[in-house]
Simulated scan of single mutants.
Amino acid sequence: MTDKTEDQSSNEGSSFDRFRARLRLLYHGQSVQALRFQFAVLLVDLAIIAFFIATPLLRGDPAFLWIDLSVAALLLADLTARGLATSDIPKWLRQLPVVVDIFILATLLFPTMLANLGFLRILRLWTLTRRSVLWKPLEKRGLGLWRESAQAVINLLVFLFIVTGFVYTFFAGEETGIEGYVDALYFTVTAVTTTGFGDIILPGTFGKLTSIIVMIVGISLFVRLAQAIFRPHKVNFPCPQCGLRKHDPDAVHCKACGHVLNIPDEGR
């Protein structure tokens, strides 16, 4: 009887291990089937992000709550599957993008309790950029050099939408001139670009501090974007001898130690 129970437990364990191995191949593999699965997941992620951006405009719709819960179910399924696909779940749970995704899931499951933090859901776009699935199509087409520039653009967009959601949540009202989401976006763009037309201002000390932070961080992100676009492109290829990661695409020797490099040509 004991042997039969142990055999049954072993079969169940092996079935679960095979399931995890299957998920690992789908999420991290390079086969045609895995790439199709990753592309489908990417499309779902982009649709979820579009929903997060449009949330302030859809909140009054009767179907909004059902859409919100459906997105929560999708996000929960994706998080569970990605967790099972990793070989070290505790280590995976400590990663910042995973922590952010769990927080976003909480805002979806408790929309009333965490309504004022809903604008942080756009961080899902940032966590998506931490995964290689977003960049694989660029690298396959020899456009991997533009990854840094694309990352800088995405970082700026995430910041703009987070600030817009924050301003709309905490400052909307007739006294500020922010009567809708577009007004909050307009203020954010004018603050980030330091244009400051003065037609919309945030009242009080808290409003002034918010404007200062938006301007400082916004300028920093613009500078980072300009650097990524206009400075010479580098490839991420660690030197086998000294470990220097950034090199010119046509570099033959490491500029730090002189070691001979063999950088793959992404254009081929």
Rank of each mutant, 00 (worst) to 15 (best):
A115K: 10
F51Y: 14
A40V: 09
R231Y: 09
L160Y: 02
R121S: 01
F103R: 01
A34E: 07
L57Q: 13
A77L: 15
T2A: 13
G173S: 07
P240D: 02
G173N: 06
G207Y: 01
H28W: 13
Y168S: 02
R24K: 08
L244H: 08
P238Q: 14
V98L: 03
D78N: 09
W135S: 02
Y186M: 09
A152Y: 05
G165R: 01
C239P: 03
L143I: 05
I67M: 10
L75F: 06
A47F: 07
H247L: 00
I102E: 11
V189D: 10
F237H: 15
L160G: 00
L76D: 04
R18T: 08
L43H: 05
R141L: 12
S31M: 15
D183H: 13
P264E: 04
F37S: 06
F170P: 00
D88R: 14
L26V: 04
I53Q: 01
T195S: 14
D61P: 03
T169P: 08
T194Q: 13
T188E: 05
T80A: 15
V99K: 10
L108V: 03
D199S: 08
L25E: 14
V189C: 12
P97A: 03
P62V: 11
V158Q: 00
G258S: 12
L138A: 07
F187D: 00
D265T: 09
A115C: 07
Q38G: 05
P137V: 12
T86H: 07
D101K: 05
I104F: 06
R59Q: 14
R245F: 09
L25G: 13
I49R: 04
D68G: 11
L74Y: 09
G13T: 10
F171N: 07
F170M: 00
W146I: 06
G196Q: 13
W66A: 09
E174K: 03
Q8S: 07
S211G: 12
S70P: 06
I229P: 04
M113C: 08
D68N: 15
L96Q: 06
A77S: 13
Q30F: 08
P97R: 02
P97K: 00
L221S: 07
L202K: 03
